[in-house]
Design a protein around this nucleic acid. Structure first.
Lengths: 216, 216
DNA sequence: TTAAATTTTTAGACTAATCTAAATTTTTTA
DNA sequence: TAAAAAATTTAGATTAGTCTAAAAATTTAA
């Protein structure tokens, strides 16, 4: 079994590798709020355990066994988030920190029964796909709202920013997972948008549109 | 916030103090599967934090703030056990180890919502009382089945041994929480008993009867 | 009531994870 | 393409929790 800290490193490397194909020491340090020197130490340890591919100064990728552990943690994180929202009435902006703790509970039996209890959900409250017990999950194709043209429409299916402030803002604007939106106007100067949701026109900035994702 | 280890020490001291009024270094060591020297170190640390009353060589008791933390952990442990059995269909002999992990999840919000979700249960699957969010709980009066006389009856309300083997045995004999039993025969030689449950006579040893508790 | 047995504490060491400061390597840029 | 900047690693400490072995205190029992 691995420590919580090792699990957090593997998870961070997994997420960073999705964007960049490999993770650098500084990226890992900043995503874990730690220092580069601490990261180097841990990378050596994870490499000794054959969980990452590591060459000094060259960044790291996960080995298959490292990836398995990371995906397992992500499965647990997302299932717990679903549980918190669907069963305990948490808001989608309140679940992250609690799930960060719950994801380290080790029992496989627990997580599989929780999955069953909830009816094998496919997506968490933020639209992120939940890996099944074999670690398999669809990476559904998404694009930002800012990539849509006038009069195009789409279903809100994910977010690129998981911060409470952003999620609270979306909630207030009724821009939640599953909602259908249509682009009505695009401001040529600042790229802000007027969009239609629930038959109402609302105005959102480019920044907001960039972080809001639509199913392709 | 305290570490998992500190929480486990406080919980162990709480449980030992119920039986003995104070906890000794060796008792703590054996209940935590660690060595006396390690316990002494930790006792100093907990005393510095004013969570225990500690005088060298004299054993320890919890201070009010130490007890509050211990009761909080016990509340979480028992609520999670209830959840595992009632919602996720775990057996009563399968929940202990998972609850040992879950009890350290820190969110108060989580545990209070879980409590609400389950309808504020008063007892866990083994009959132990669940403290409420203020740390209050009834210590209901219980006595072992071995203290009953012939033809006396009672409702099974708790166990003194929480080991999986014992719980599995009780389950097999239908000696579960809430069942009504009547004493029919007491063997003068080995103090084993013939008791009636579900209109069936079964035979149990003195040891089994000693660890099975009846409401007074 | 003193010697033996038991319990507890101290001393000193080890591991995991972290840090700062300094050294080294890689990347950028002029 | 060499000097400057940035990124990364090494060196040496620190903290939490643990251990073994030895010393000290308490309890038991002859």
């Amino acid at each position: 079994m691995n420590t919580f800290t090792e699990e957090n490193y593997l998870k961070a490397i997994f997420h960073l590798s999705l964007q960049n194909e490999y993770a650098s020491t500084n990226q890992i340090a900043s995503s874990l709020n730690t220092k580069a020197a601490s990261v180097t130490d841990m990378l050596k340890k994870l490499a000794d355990k054959h969980l990452i591919n590591y060459t000094k100064y060259q960044g790291v990728t996960l080995t298959p066994s490292g990836e398995k552990i990371a995906v397992d943690i992500i499965r647990k994180h997302r299932l717990w988030e679903y549980f918190l929202v669907e069963k305990l009435n948490f808001k989608w902006d309140e679940v992250h920190d609690v799930a960060e703790e719950l994801e380290h509970i080790s029992s496989k039996e627990l997580i599989n029964r929780l999955d069953e209890f909830m009816g094998y959900p496919k997506y968490d409250p933020h639209g992120d796909p939940i890996p099944d017990s074999n670690g398999l999950f669809k990476t559904h194709q998404l694009k930002p709202v800012s990539a849509l043209a006038i009069n195009e429409n789409g279903i809100i299916s994910g977010v690129r920013d998981h911060s409470p402030t952003y999620l609270q803002y979306l909630e207030k604007m009724h821009l939640t997972i599953g909602k259908k939106i249509t682009i009505r106007e695009i401001n040529a100067y600042d790229h802000s948008l007027t969009i239609e949701v629930n038959d109402q026109k609302i105005h959102i900035s480019r920044e907001v549109a960039n972080n809001l994702l639509i199913a392709i």
